[in-house]
């Protein structure tokens, strides 16, 4: 890697004061460390967020579950509160990468990166979670803005994310090498109806499958996802063609909705 300066602040304010162009944030490092090692990034300063206590942890507040941006996937997967209140989120976090990734990778890092094949964006979008930052609060529907693009400013730091406590489920078909989603569907039922968010498949990143949501809201026992239109263009790469990905989305939707129904019953 190229040489850079490194700091490890202990408060969010310190980090906020330092961040900016070429002054990059390091969360779990599961994407950024390999990028640095391959000399694909040349930051002037690396600001390590790992020692800021306020960014860690899970608690319940005002009927919502708040998860700190630096909370590891393994913590979310094993947390009793998350498992009982947002079961699909816990199982999703428990299926990310491998144990090493899950003990380093963080919620905030995954959201800020917005990899089109990452799992967290599907959960956050489907649950309409709120992303709280050092500057403001952003609703999930406004947060994700396409491949590796979010509403975050360059000098904005995610502090925590709040989720509603609702029945929900997640199912992904894995890309066999990386374990990322070839197609992943997160399903839940909020007050205004069913929500299905799809990751791994859309060329513009995570998206809500509105036709499926409408079909379920019309008939909660709907199951013929193969008949529904899937509007976004699908990713085509060495792992899967577009038609296979859309098939996986449809199959995943059918299976995950079946899981959700079991919870709702």
């Amino acid at each position: 890697m190229y040489e850079f300066d490194y700091v490890r602040p202990t408060t969010l304010q310190e980090a906020q004061d330092l961040v900016g162009e070429d002054k990059k944030l390091l969360a779990g490092g599961q994407t950024y460390m390999p990028t640095l090692r391959q000399r694909l990034a040349m930051p002037e300063l690396l600001i390590d967020l790992n020692a800021i206590p306020v960014l860690h942890g899970i608690c319940e507040a005002d009927d919502r579950i708040s998860i700190g941006a630096m909370t590891r996937h393994a913590e979310v997967a094993s947390d009793g509160l998350v498992r009982s209140k947002i079961p699909g989120l816990a199982s999703m976090a428990g299926g990310i990468g491998d144990p090493a990734v899950r003990h380093r990778g963080t919620l905030g890092g995954s959201l800020a990166n917005n990899d089109p094949s990452a799992c967290y964006p599907a959960a956050v979008l489907a649950l309409n979670a709120v992303v709280h930052t050092s500057k403001r609060s952003i609703e999930a529907k406004d947060f994700f803005q396409g491949l590796f693009t979010t509403a975050l400013d360059e000098d904005e730091i995610i502090s925590h994310v709040t989720f509603p406590s609702v029945p929900c489920a997640y199912l992904k078909f894995k890309q066999p090498a990386s374990g990322f989603a070839l197609a992943g569907v997160f399903a839940c039922k909020l007050d205004d109806g069913f929500r299905l968010a799809v990751t791994g498949a859309g060329q513009e990143g995570v998206f809500r499958w509105q036709q499926a949501e409408a079909a379920l809201n019309n008939d909660a026992s709907f199951g013929d996802f193969k008949s529904l239109a899937l509007e976004p263009d699908m990713i085509e790469d060495v792992h899967a063609d577009a038609d296979y990905r859309s098939n996986l989305v449809r199959v995943a939707a059918g299976r995950v909705v079946a899981q959700l129904r079991e919870q709702l019953a």
Partner: peptide, 9 residues
């Protein structure tokens, strides 16, 4: 095309 363990299964 698939020269890493992220792509080579």
């Amino acid at each position: 095309v698939n020269g890493s363990f992220m792509d080579y299964a």
